[in-house]
Design a protein around this nucleic acid. Structure first.
Length: 333
RNA sequence: GCUGGGAUGGCGGAGUGGACAAUCGCAACAGUCUGUAAAACUGUCGCCCGAACGGGCUACCUAGGUUCGAAUCCUGGUCCCAGCA
């Protein structure tokens, strides 16, 4: 049976690093040695080109995206210290992206990795994307409708609720209080209802591959400290220039990509007229750090519901050894 | 030193006699999740009892006072800010 290793958890826990290590540790194919694993990033922002520092791609200098010779796969990978990294740089920052697109992309990549008898390691903090790949999202096949989205763009929540209730009372009733107040979810529900595509809520079919979930976490204190340190480091290695380059290239603040954490917090700083620039910068940094911490919390909330995940606390010295043991056992039979 | 303004919950900031345990924003805490998911959205947020309706206690710098009733009015004190010296 095919296998997929998932490494998930909140930001700043060292998921990628662990993934790289495991990829190298595993033997390739029946008798080869070396990286028997390849990483597929499950990250909703690393998909964008030109957003490297802020999204934590940690690419070696001058690294270039490469394509496989013997494959029709249109996506490329980066070679990071001998390990293949997929899922980066899939679209331009001014392009639209969605889970559906991620799922299609990741599935193609994973299939190709299997074809070459290697282990795909899905690494990332975007729980929804991981869910999409591992469990599937039935409605994902319903494309978005620009017409509908435009039409309901500025409607009040109340109006959206009325519309959905009229079309699909059952669906509306099945939503919880928080989703009933969420304009995006309401519009999407309307969109699904209106869709020509026949859609049924089917039970998820059993995945035809075997998945091991590794979750990395730690205490809030340690996590907070790591987040702060990482943000400061990103500033040092030229994050602000990265934003400047994006703006120069014509990327605007209302592009979906720029809603990313760490980027959106700089809008004021880069658009305001001189004067209090110094304060704006401090403010941006502070609010960036704060947002990262809040994000980590949301990630934890998402992941902790999934009881397939085997959790490891990164403050425990031997966690890598223990993960490796677990992964090897799982991988070898 | 004089003149004027101000002191409100972790922070910012409303409220200027009863409907105030005090609008709102932030932070914090707890969550939601089937095509924007690093997004969007929900709940809680003085203390105690209660599932809840609710009840009790302590609160708007401090000490007094006026009033049936004060965060709101008056007096003294402390501190802060602005203008003048």
């Amino acid at each position: 049976m095919r296998k997929l290793l998932v490494i998930c958890g909140p930001t700043a826990t060292g998921k990628t690093e662990l993934g790289m290590y495991l990829a190298k540790m595993l033997a390739a194919g029946p008798k080869g040695s070396g990286p028997g694993g390849e990483i597929v990033s499950a990250d909703s922002r690393q998909i964008y080109k030109g957003m490297d520092i802020g999204t934590g791609k940690d690419l070696p200098k001058k690294s270039k995206i490469q394509k496989l010779q013997d494959s029709k796969l249109e996506y490329g990978f980066f070679n990071i210290t001998g390990v293949r990294m997929w899922g980066y740089d899939i679209v331009e920052p001014n392009e639209d992206f969605s889970v559906a697109r991620y799922i299609n992309t990741a599935n193609l990549i994973i299939k190709d990795i299997w074809r070459r008898n290697k282990l795909p390691i899905l690494v990332g903090g975007t729980g929804f994307y991981i869910k999409g790949v591992v469990d599937g999202i039935p409605t994902a096949s319903v494309p978005k409708s620009l017409r509908i989205r435009e039409k309901f763009k500025d409607k009040l929540v109340k109006e959206l609720q009325d519309v959905l209730r009229k079309f699909d009372a059952k669906r509306f009733a099945s939503m919880n209080e928080s989703d009933k107040n969420n304009p995006r979810r309401l519009v999407r529900a309307i969109e699904i209802y209106k869709s020509k595509y026949k859609f049924e809520y089917k039970k998820h079919s059993e995945p035809n591959f075997n998945t091991l979930f590794i979750g990395l976490t730690t205490t809030k204190q340690i996590l907070d400290r790591r987040i702060e340190k990482r943000v400061r480091n990103r500033l040092q290695v030229g994050f602000e220039d990265e934003i400047r380059n994006l703006l120069k290239a014509g990327i605007t603040w209302d592009n979906q990509a720029m809603q990313a954490l760490g980027y959106r917090q700089w809008q004021e700083f880069f658009t305001t007229s001189a004067k209090s620039v110094r304060n704006q910068r401090e403010f941006a940094i502070e609010s960036w750090i704060r947002s990262e911490k809040q994000y980590a919390k949301r990630q934890l909330i998402w992941f902790k519901k999934d009881n397939r995940i085997k959790w490891f606390d990164i403050k425990e010295k031997d966690y890598v050894v223990r993960v490796e043991k677990l992964v090897r056992e799982w991988h070898n039979n």
